[in-house]
Amino acid sequence: MSGVIKTLPIEITVNGRRRTLEVAVHHTLLDVLREDLELTGTKECCLVGECGACTVMVDGRIVDSCLMLAVEADGAEILTVEGLARDGHLNPLQQAFLDKGAVQCGFCTPGQLMAAQALLVENPHPNVAEVQEGLAGNLCRCGCYYQIFEAVLSVAEAGSR
């Protein structure tokens, strides 16, 4: 046995809701979101910070939640894909992803949305190159990258009207 699993209490705010949890210290934020909080919209794929499927926002910045221990998030504010829609209405990015065909199998979509959301918060009027750079950490094997760019740019454009 490598030892009894150690746990620690943490307090995090997830999608606006304050949560107090006892988490295993070796569990990642991804583990805790998916298993302890049953927020399975955040996806697990490569576990080495290459694919971006597990992207969430921590204190306003996107991270790969597979590369962050849950205990590190103690005190943080976390936004996941489940927190994007408000009052049952999709947010503009979610709607644009649907309208522009930026979704195929959908497995990378939550991560793409989080990365796109962060990009637009930081840079409300990105050009294509900036969108490419901002989403470079999110692999889409279905290959709807161009449609994703279009979706992000359409939201940016709508925001400037």
């Binding site: 996941t80 894909v81 489940e82 999709l90 649907l98």
Partner: peptide
């Protein structure tokens, strides 16, 4: 599509 963009 809605399930796919909402994480559901």
């Amino acid at each position: 599509g809605i399930g796919r963009v909402s994480g559901l």
